[in-house]
Amino acid sequence: MIENEKELIEAIAEMREEEAFALAKGMLDRGEDPVRVLELCREAMDIVGKRFEKQEYFLPELVLAGEMLENIGAIAKPLIQEKSGGASNKLGRVLIGTVHGDLHDIGKNIVTFMLDINGFEVKDIGIDVPVAKFVEEIQDFKPAVVGLSGFLTLAFDSMKETVQAIEAAGLRDQMKIMIGGGQVDEAVRTYTGADAYGINAVAAVTLCREWIAA
């Protein structure tokens, strides 16, 4: 790996935003392969993700890293020539949404982001998602894991109703269901009929790895 490639990875991983952008822009201006630049970003995100798992990094670092990725992506992607196909090498599909009645999205967004940088193909269907929409999206997307997010205590019932509807549609045995957010714990997991609950985004990644690798 050449020197400025290492520098770019390090700048992103160390949260030096301006330097990271300047390095990426410099590489692109010099005509280096934009695909390579994005690969380096992804390598840096791996480091960020690992530090998050080790609790060296927290949410501000994930958000800033996401911004860096987006800003570099915005100048790199237009330079990538159309390629045919582009086979997906994603680990597996995860569908995620905040259950009906609940408008909170931060936790869900962080989980989506973490799953994405860990190689899962994630479809985020938003907040306040009606039970029927979950079922429809599941039929359409065929995920291996469904994540139900909710911050408020009202979400306990919404999660339960969503799990029941998935069951009623005959889809339950095709997937694992994880819940998370706010005051969710083991008692809530039992109540809702989900397979597992996670206390943070790292837990969500761990669960998906276990389930999808298995």
């Binding site: 205590t153 005051q183 714990d185 008692a187 809530v188």
Partner: peptide, 9 residues
Amino acid sequence: VPASMLTTG
């Protein structure tokens, strides 16, 4: 007292 206990316990 946990929210889950008050609501589901």
